[in-house]
Design a protein around this nucleic acid. Structure first.
Lengths: 327, 327
DNA sequence: TTGTACGCGTTATCAA
DNA sequence: TTGATAACGCGTACAA
């Protein structure tokens, strides 16, 4: 079914059908006929043809590093909700943790397909920034703060600072298991939060208490082992992610070290499995759904031209105290 | 940049540019010029216009109940991989666990946007089946077996039958915590697996050992309590999902019942958190990634017309024995 | 091997 | 209030 056939069936011109569907500047009489004909033939306009004419695709592209993650799942849920409200569709591009793919999809989205892009970032390189600045559709970066680009991000810095400060009330000897600082959010900001908390209490930052891990549970396991070898006097451990914290807890249990009595452990992320493990995990919770919602709204505003000005939205957090660190 | 502008810049006709981009029936000389002009202007053809002409959108629609789940995440990863190989894009429709939304998106995908649809199903109603049969793009149902429709699904029946059979070597008094049987896969098939295993050993199916839960951890917690009240002599529990099993484990621990010595517990799904909890969870693992991969390939074959015949693909499973049931 | 000309299904302009 | 008609960007018979 095309608009032409509908027009013929209804005995009007294509233009009238189009008007009926859009502005609605049509006489009551023809309106009735059209309603009937369209319903009977269950006619739906071709999105492609519409896009060709109007340059509006009605879809939003979301670039994600992977889909199999609670945090990302939550953010996508939020995005889905907010853009569905505004009648947009969602197109997902999964980069499988490959920076090159991010660039590729940014390019693709820039040329076609979408009216706007949400990039759930991990590592944002100079090339990313350049590309994003030059895009001809609006872009919102999610979960990373990027100078000069609209973004919605978690308060990685203050949340870890808070977490560390609370643990500092129990002990001065706190270690840190971090991740690559190329990831500004999970790597750099969280570590800075830890450092700043130490500084506020006049404690000197000491490399002896710092180790690095990848994002896996096994990574956390190994890193924790390294840490307690380097710094046997450590009494608390802040882990940059919950995954790492789970690995750390495992290692400590395997070595017969009492949690939290001998060593406290805390993670970051608020993952659901934190409350399933033994002991349950003290952590920082972020509002993933709300972040996605906010990003979706911001982007839709930008698309509709409501918001000319760039915006940076920093979201809140909550400290979730459980048994691995009673702080 | 349009094909017309490129043509002018290169001093050829639009048709030649189009041929260069598609069939490639162009002289070496013009080929060189075109390559240069196209690169210099970083020209990319408009997908909408292409679609309008060719009726091919180059994208595949995936309808999912929610995104925040390990199983679904794994399947999407698999789909992404396989369709990216074939040059298709992926469009995601999140129904937020609402059957009405599934119908809505099926309709939308049928009219526009996509060359094929993958439906990750939970509850498949008659309306679903009718709609799917009448679609004018190919459809593959994932994670549910649907008569008369191409589908890729887990072996819910045999996996739970196996699991139960192995537990039956330790005890005859096995309870079952199930979910709604409107979900044919997680509800009906798994329960039938349990029943059949009992039958094979000549044990009479007894309602006393059966309770029902929703899909949540809390649901499992409550259901398990109900079960041990109804059947205090139960020595093993099969849970329809890992989530439920986690709740059950929690309840038993709270009531001071030793796992697995007094009561064994097993789940279904192979979720990662099963190995984090204490005791670690015996479960059935499915190959989510592989399922998604298979579904993607099947759909692409159907789109390209290679596979006229409907196919039903049943995927394998593995029993993962951990500490909650040493079977 | 190349170019002309038409059509895909819409929306937008303009004159009636 | 309506209808002709052009235009969006592309692919493809067909003729050259």
């Amino acid at each position: 079914m095309t608009i032409k056939e509908i027009a013929e069936l209804a005995g009007v011109s294509r233009a009238t059908v189009s008007r009926y569907l859009n502005d609605g500047y049509v006489s009551e009489e023809k309106r009735k006929i059209l309603k009937k004909v369209i319903e009977e033939n269950s006619y739906v306009p071709s999105t492609q043809a519409q896009t060709l004419r109007t340059k509006r695709t009605g879809t939003i592209g979301v670039i994600i590093p992977r889909v199999n993650s609670e945090a990302i799942g939550g953010m996508i849920d939020g995005i889905s909700d907010s853009i569905a409200e505004s009648g947009y569709r969602l197109m997902l591009a999964n980069t499988a943790n490959n920076e090159k793919n991010e660039i590729k999809y940014l390019r693709a989205f820039n040329e076609n397909f979408v009216d706007g892009v949400i990039l759930i970032g991990t590592i944002i390189t100079g090339e990313h920034k350049r590309l994003v600045s030059g895009m001809n559709v609006p872009v919102v970066v999610l979960a990373q703060k990027v100078e000069g680009v609209s973004c919605v991000y978690h308060d990685d810095f203050n949340s870890v600072k808070d977490l560390t400060a609370r643990m500092l009330k129990k002990t001065d000897r706190i270690g840190y298991i971090g991740v690559t600082e190329r990831d500004k959010a999970a790597g750099l900001s969280r570590k800075n939060g830890y450092k700043t908390a130490l500084g506020s209490k006049g404690i000197k930052y000491d490399d002896k208490y710092i180790v690095k891990s990848d994002f896996s549970i096994e990574g956390g396991y190994k890193a924790c082992n390294e840490l307690i070898e380097k710094a046997p006097d450590v009494r608390g451990i802040i882990c940059a992610t919950d995954n790492i914290a789970v690995g750390a807890v495992k290692l400590l249990k395997d070595r017969g070290i009492a949690i939290p009595d001998r060593i406290m452990v805390a993670g970051v992320g608020g993952n659901i499995f934190g409350e399933m493990i033994e002991p349950s995990l003290t952590t920082v919770g972020y509002y993933y759904d709300a972040c996605g919602l906010e990003a979706g709204r911001l982007l839709v505003d930008m698309i509709k031209g409501k918001t000319k000005a760039r915006r940076e939205i920093k979201m809140g957090y909550e400290i979730i105290v459980r048994n691995s660190a009673l702080i």
